[in-house]
Structures are given as C-alpha cells and as structure tokens.
Design a protein around this nucleic acid. Structure first.
Lengths: 196, 196
DNA sequence: GGACGCATGTAATAGGTTACATGATTAC
DNA sequence: GTAATCATGTAACCTATTACATGCGTCC
C-alpha cells in the first residue's frame, strides 16, 4: 500500500480543513481544480485507502433533511506524509494537450473551422483568467502581505493561483496570435474575391 | 473500433513523412513530445489498430546490419480522418501537474528543501525554453514568412513551438518569483541568526 | 413534472506505465 | 566489457473515465 498522487491531492485539501468526499469532488472538478482533476468514483475509494493507511479518519454526520455524510480529517501521520512529499523531487510532468495536438496538424483543416475552434477556446480561457485574477485580488485584499510569506497557510494556494494566472494569460495571448494568423488576408483569397 | 487521441498523434506525425514505430516513440518521448507523450509499448499496438482500420499501412524494410523495420505510411482514409478531427471541438484539457499540487501545500515543507526543488526545475525549464527558442529561430531562418501562412505544411509545427516557448517562459518567470519568496529575509529568521 | 444539488458508492472499460523479452552493432 | 542505439513486441499492473445505482429536498 502506498499513497498515489491523487491521495496527496486529497491530503493537501484536508490539511486546511475537514471535508467530505463530495466536497473534495467539487474542489477537484474542472475547471476549478486547475492543477489536478478527479471524479468522485476515484475519490471515494482513495479516501478509503488513505483511511486504511491511517492518514485520514472520518466521523459520520447524520443529517435529517439530507443524506448522511462522512467528514474526513487528516491525521498526524497524514500531515507528516504530506510534509515529506511536498519537497520530494517531481517526475517530469507528462504533457498531454489534445488542443496542441490538433494545432500540430491544423494546416490540414479548414481555416474557418479552425478559427471557430480557437475563438471558443479564447473565450473560455479569457473567462478563466478573469476568474483567477478576481480570486487573487480578493485574497490580496483580505490577507495582504501575509500571502508572500512562504510559511503562511495561504501561501501555496496563492502561489498556484499566480501560476494559473500566468498560464491562462499566456494561453490567451497565443490564441490571439493564431487567430490573427488564421484571419490574415491571403493573396490567393483576395484574388478569388476580386474576380468572383 | 475508434481512433484514440494517441492514434491521431501518430497520424499527425505520419502526415508529414513515413516513420517506423521506433521513430514515433522517439518523437513522443519526453521532453521532446511537449504536447503528447507515449511509450513504445503503447505505440506498437496503436499502429496495429490504425492499420486494421485502414488509416495506415506499412512496408517491411529488411536491413542487413540492423533489425528489420516496419515503415508506416498514412493512407488517404487516414489523412481524411485526421483532417476531420483537427477542427472538431476539444474536451476541456485535464490538468495534472504534480509540481503545482506540491506547491499548493508547500508551506508545510522545509523552505530550503523547497528552494532546492524549484531551483532544479528552473534549470530544467530554462534549458527547455532555450532549446525551443533555438528551434524556432532556425525554422524562421529557413522558412521565413511561409511559417505564418496557416496553410503551410510547417504552420502547425511552428504554432505549437510558439506555444511551447510561451509556456516555458511563463514557467521560468514563476519559478523566479517563488524562489524570490522562499529566500526573502524573514524577520523571525533574522532574529534567530542574530542571537544564535 | 423535471432538473439540479446533496451524498455515497460499485462495475466495466479505456488509457498509460513498468517490466519482461530478444538480439545485433557501435561507441567509449 | 559495458552502455547506448536500433528495432519490435507482450504481460501485468496502475490510473482514470464512463456508466450504473439509489434517494430525498428544493427550485422553476
């Protein structure tokens, strides 16, 4: 028995507060969980595995009007395992971006359809960028310079958020570049237009 | 029988030239395949599946000094399938970044060990950025403005390379930010130093 | 009446990694 | 000699997605 990466993701959230499997599923649902995603069907068995290893425990909360729930708490052993893991070297991240894979062969497709694809994506990521920025701004307003202290409990959250902002900003800029390319007037098109 | 995303990745490379499974494994090996990765154990069966679907075919090349090899060619049907796929909407990309997951809880770890981790990563991504930039520069020198034509056979390659550059540049900037945070003088540390 | 949120689970399948397996040639 | 490159494959295992399953309360 060992802890999977998903297990550490769950421990990471549980280190801040008590949560149910349902809560965790919500946190790891796209596009909110912007550095790790998982479905509830993976989360429930993983929580059970963490419990068997003594890294979390739960208490059942009986609710009159809603289904009963299991509120999970990280144990001392869980916190120790997480603390050890965070500074261990990472494996080089596996890049799997379907959109970039399509882009690699985009010259084969219809330019107008391609432009439609990237326009949709631009909108999605512009919205995401705005959301991240708002969240960062509200954190900054509430916490101020504490966020910049690498021992503050909110430091990791703020650091990942900054990375999310940088990532989305870069993405948006790239969409704008490719859309400009796709809609730039082509000599051939111009000729056809002139004579048809 | 349907074509997996990996299948389209293989078709994408085969659209440009004939390749063996071994060649494809090399192209999809980290960190070269920066938008899709796969091992040879996944590639060989996938090529066979594409062949059964009539999207690729191969010819055996007998080599006197080296092992025989299968040189794969994309078929007309394969090219059509690829062309159709490139402009189809993408599923929202699943983000799974172990490093960011660690960052989320980094305040729990030792700041010096954390700094070592990010210093390593900074070096790796600085090198990757430089490599992408050199590749882009050499492409630009050879092909010039053709690269900016979305119908040019090199357009997709150039577009993904630009994205790679943007991505790595953003990453490097973020590493610098977090390292600055981790090594910034803390009042508490200063006090301890003064009195110990 | 139907969709959505809360809440937890299992089963079947697909996708991906690691390890096993073989064997010649070339470079250090 | 020994490690790396070329070259192709299979088997076992782990990880992740989709689908199946249940049931109450609230909102429109």
């Amino acid at each position: 028995m060992r802890v999977s990466t998903l297990g550490y993701a769950l421990l990471g959230f549980l280190a801040a507060r008590k949560l149910t499997g349902y809560d965790l599923a919500r946190l790891l649902r796209e596009p909110l969980g912007f550095f790790w995603t998982a479905r509830h069907s993976q989360i429930y068995p993983e929580l059970e595995s963490l419990r068997r290893q003594g890294l979390v425990r739960f208490q059942v909360i009986v609710q009159p009007t809603r289904p009963d729930k299991k509120l999970y708490t990280i144990t001392r052993a869980g916190r120790a395992a997480l603390r050890k893991w965070v500074t261990e070297p990472v494996k080089s991240p596996v890049q799997r971006d379907e959109e970039l894979l399509k882009t690699f062969s985009i010259q084969l497709g219809d330019p107008e359809e391609a432009a439609a694809l990237y326009t949709d994506q631009l909108r999605i990521h512009r919205d995401l960028l705005q959301r991240h920025r708002r969240l960062a701004a509200s954190l900054e307003r509430l916490q101020g310079k504490t966020l910049l202290d690498p021992r503050s409990p909110q430091f990791g959250n703020y650091a990942t958020l900054r990375r999310g902002i940088g990532y989305e900003r870069e993405r948006v800029a790239w969409y704008r570049w490719i859309l400009a390319r796709l809609s730039a007037p082509k000599p051939r098109t111009a000729k056809i237009r002139r004579y048809v």
